[in-house]
Design a protein around this nucleic acid. Structure first.
Lengths: 205, 205
DNA sequence: TCGACTATGTATAACGC
DNA sequence: TGCGTTATACATAGTCG
């Protein structure tokens, strides 16, 4: 359904994949909506991009609002750059959201107590909670993995910087012993040998 | 996308609605599958017909949605074990255990398909899976948090070490200027220019 | 990178059995 | 009820700006 037939397999080019994701995601959510309206059935679609973002459709819309709220919580937290803060904040956000979810649940249960919930109602409720749980957990894992990855990179950078500093220290001490007058001598050409040493040292950087 | 345009609204004729449901359901599930494969994202679709029948698609294994969790666990463990060797063993153990449990589950479900499992059997099975899930999840979170904590400590140490080295470097360079003749100079100092270049390069670090 | 366009492949409404 | 066929609407891959 485009200019040419495409195989159903993972798209290699990242940009193409991103574009296709955007288009097809939209299409899928529309079709889910159409199906639920036209055929009068319950439909839920959850999509998690590999960058961890959540897209969803739910014909029984009680879950939608709550999940969006959760998303905005997490998004706000994402702004904070310090890694551990991200972890802790998202933990807190998750807690709050779960609390809200439970409150909502309890309220619903209480409200409906008089007339009684049908088994179907409870099944729906269970599905919604299950979905919320899965998304929350998935998001948690994603954030922590990101955090770990970032810390590893930072660690690598620090170690490299460290190594360079040590080398410099060693070299300067060496130079100080070998040619301490070097700093402000103007007229003395370097020997061939020293030049070689220096260049070798610099190349090492 | 048929002989004539249809409005997106509930189809009145029951038989038409049923036919449309069958076709569109199939289409939706296919598109969900395509999306998950082509764009390499997680997709889950749940459809409940108004007669209560369940249709679903999940890009990660979906028997109950518990397997989805299992997936993320394995992924998490992969990442973590790269840096925590101790994890290796427990990871493998958990894998085998969960794997066996799931195999057992599937076997039982298949074997008993004709006669059907009793409700008691299923409740028992559910509890077992639930327990395994909780333990696995708890372990995952623990390991990741430990990992993050450790990395933060390591980072702090590296930064301190870094600072010390920088201080040393600064002090030594200072000394070199003030009393450059103090050290035993040999006979061949480098040129000013080359030294300058060197220092500029080093300062940049 | 992003939205708009368009040629083309797909999904499906209606129909027949 | 369900499957196959066909004409048509729709979704989208590639392209351009």
């Amino acid at each position: 359904m485009g200019r040419k037939k495409v195989e159903i397999k993972r798209i290699q080019e990242k940009s193409c994949r991103q574009v296709a994701f955007c288009k097809r995601r939209k299409g899928l959510l529309k079709k889910a909506k159409d199906l639920s309206i036209m055929c009068d059935v319950d439909v839920a679609v959850v999509i998690i991009s590999n960058s961890g973002r959540l897209y969803e459709f739910s014909s029984s819309n009680s879950l939608t609002g709550i999940l969006q709220q959760y998303e905005s919580h997490v998004e706000a937290d994402k702004e904070i750059s310090a890694e551990i803060q991200v972890t802790e904040h998202s933990k807190y956000a998750r807690f709050v959201t779960t609390g809200e979810l439970l409150q909502t649940t309890e309220r619903q249960l209480e409200e409906n107590d008089a007339e009684g919930l049908t088994v179907t109602d409870l099944v729906h409720l269970e599905n919604e909670l299950q979905t919320a749980l899965i998304q929350t957990r998935s998001r948690q894992t994603h954030l922590m993995l990101e955090s770990i990855k970032g810390l590893h990179e930072e660690e690598k950078l620090l170690q490299e910087e460290n190594k360079l500093l040590e080398d410099n220290l060693a070299r300067i001490q060496q130079n100080g012993k070998v040619n301490d007058t070097s700093m402000d001598s103007t007229d003395l050409p370097p020997t061939h040998i020293i030049c070689g040493q220096q260049r070798a040292t610099l190349n090492f950087l």
